[in-house]
């Protein structure tokens, strides 16, 4: 029951840093590293801590629609086949070709994904759900043993277009604050806007308020022009690790259900006051399908 750090994009320096020690595993791909680099990195990681290392060969690049989960029966069939092999760990990769920072909004697909995770777990096959974003909370509600995410949360989903993002020639990558109270990534201007609009209490809810969050807010006051990209990765990852751990309990479905209800209410309050965030699609519209998926999952009665 622990978070895994999805490596990539030169994120080796994040392994074992104070505030992120809670990650107990690392996911890295031999495809993206030479044999020599892989050996060197693994040796270095071993010196930093007793990490469970998962090598992701990235053999997934479906050319057809077989991997979709439109019906619960698809998830149950896949889980039936996988569980017959009694694997020590099921590494689940969700291929969702979404734009950066956008969430999966298809409730039936999310419900089926939760069923897949849950039935595997209940049949004795622990799961590691890779490339998670804040939808990790749904996977934990479904009983996932482990969830993984990486520093590039805006590239968090495994998607074929994610590699486009790396080019990023328009002035470098933007920093984002991850906010549990809205289950969304906020720009610096969004934080300022929320405060100006009287929604200061929407900032730093739960594990969003971690040691890196404090450093970011302090920096906003003392050094407002200083870059905070590195801190933004850490603030998100710390939230991820702490929350993943906190949701490794039997009550996770109820906890997440209550969170989502509160989050939706906060978005409704912002809407009613015409407080609009910088990015037009950063509007909380994914929360309703997430609640629907969780509701369907709870009613399924596993």
């Amino acid at each position: 029951m622990a978070a895994y750090l999805q490596m990539g994009h030169d994120s080796e320096n994040l392994v074992g840093v104070p505030g992120l020690e809670g990650f107990s595993g690392l996911v890295l791909s031999p495809v993206n590293r030479s044999e020599g680099e892989l050996s060197k990195h693994i040796s270095a990681f071993r010196q930093k801590g007793n990490y469970d290392l998962v090598l992701d060969p990235q053999l997934y690049c479906p050319k057809s629609e077989r991997g979709q989960l439109p019906e619960p029966s698809d998830a149950l069939r896949i889980a039936s086949i996988m569980s017959s092999r009694k694997p020590p760990l099921c590494y689940i990769v969700v291929d969702a070709d979404l734009p950066p920072r956008r969430e999966i909004e298809n409730a039936p697909n999310l419900f089926s994904l939760m069923l897949l995770v849950s039935t595997l777990e209940k049949s004795g096959c622990p799961t590691l759900v890779s490339h998670c974003s804040s939808d990790m909370v749904l996977m934990k509600a479904a009983g996932a043993s482990h969830c993984a995410s990486g520093k590039f949360f805006n590239l968090r989903r495994f998607s074929r277009s994610r590699f486009d993002e790396e080019q990023d020639v328009g002035g470098g990558q933007l920093p984002y604050w991850f906010e549990q109270g809205l289950l969304a990534f906020l720009r610096g201007a969004d934080i300022a806007r929320l405060r100006r609009s009287g929604f200061d209490n929407f900032i730093g809810v739960g594990a969003s308020n971690n040691i890196f969050a404090s450093q970011i807010l302090e920096q906003f006051v003392n050094e407002p022009t200083k870059a905070w990209l590195g801190l933004s990765w850490r603030q998100y990852l710390a939230w991820f690790e702490l929350t993943e751990k906190g949701l490794s309990v039997a009550e996770a479905p109820t906890i997440v259900s209550n969170w989502l209800k509160e989050v939706e209410q906060r978005w409704e309050q912002l809407e009613s006051k015409n407080v609009l965030l910088e990015e037009s699609r950063n509007n909380g519209r994914w929360i309703r399908p997430w609640r629907q998926a969780l509701g369907d999952f709870s009613r399924f009665g596993l």
Binding site: L76, R77, A79, S83, L120, G124, L302
Partner: peptide, 8 residues
């Protein structure tokens, strides 16, 4: 579904 039955 087999996965919903007993595992062993």
């Amino acid at each position: 579904w087999p996965v919903l039955r007993f595992r062993d």
